[in-house]
Amino acid sequence: MSHLIEINGLKKTFPVYGKTGKIFSQKEYMCAVDNLSFYIEEGETYGLVGESGCGKSTTGRAIVGLTKADGGSILYKGKDLCKLNDKQFRPLRKEIQMVFQNALSALNPRRRIGDILGEILEIHGMKDADERREQVIETLKKVGLSEEHYFRFPHELSGGQVQRLGIASALIIGPRLIVCDEPVSALDVSIQAQILNMLIELQKELRISMLFISHDIGVIRFISDRIGVMYLGTLTEEASTETLFANPLHPYTKMLFDAVPDPYITNREFHALTGEQPVRTQAFQGCAFYNRCPYASDRCKIETPEFKEVESGHKVACHMVS
């Protein structure tokens, strides 16, 4: 297997306005993603997990080209996606697609489903209307919808069906990589299971790679081959799913896993206080997790821990683990 996509030192900053609250004061920047590196292999599912605000969605959007990265590179088939302009990016859109959390807002409410999906094909060069129609119906069937949905509007569908449609619109032009940004978070568990089963089935059939972004540890574990745990814009730990769950090393990973409510453990005592994620500024130094870490020492405050491999395929950024 070769690396389908390789992300090296990705960086994305957003301006925040000065602490005085004045609009015209000196701009400050917060780093949504900082020095993030990982790769996805052909046919693999890579899971990105972390709390909201840790930059997992920004990473996904940078890969699809919805946000311009400020630094680093995204190598796809030898091309650096960060350096392409819109026109050069367009042919690659066909190969890298995205599934959003709220599919209903990602679909045009005034157009029929057949038109929405057909338009994607038209833009990517399928001129024959009959051919388009055929392909649309085929894709609808693939995601568990049927021909009768062709003339319906998105709002007529239930939550699960809309998400199926969102997946259909990503799959219809035959991508190599799909970025799934919290595709099941808004769904009920029974529907969530249906969608997860379908994604796995489709992935096997079409041999696509997936970047699966979620804050739900159970879901991430279920679907991913390898997992990256993100905190405050960087990876804190990365390993294959089995290794990560058998032997989590980073204190943040442990904390995250401990907080997962398990329906089969009744009357568990909750933990009191673990703090919250701070904002990362550019002048940031030390370990990102410093203020919440139970094992933090003075060294963690000053020195940024290196993201290094402790065993084959298992990387951790922590001074305490060596």
Partner: peptide, 21 residues
């Protein structure tokens, strides 16, 4: 209860579902 992908479920194996909505 069956369709929650909790931490003891076998990975990538079809989850039981409640059909329909």
């Amino acid at each position: 209860l069956a369709c929650i992908p909790h931490l003891a479920v076998e990975r990538r194996k079809e989850l039981p579902t409640i059909p329909g909505s």
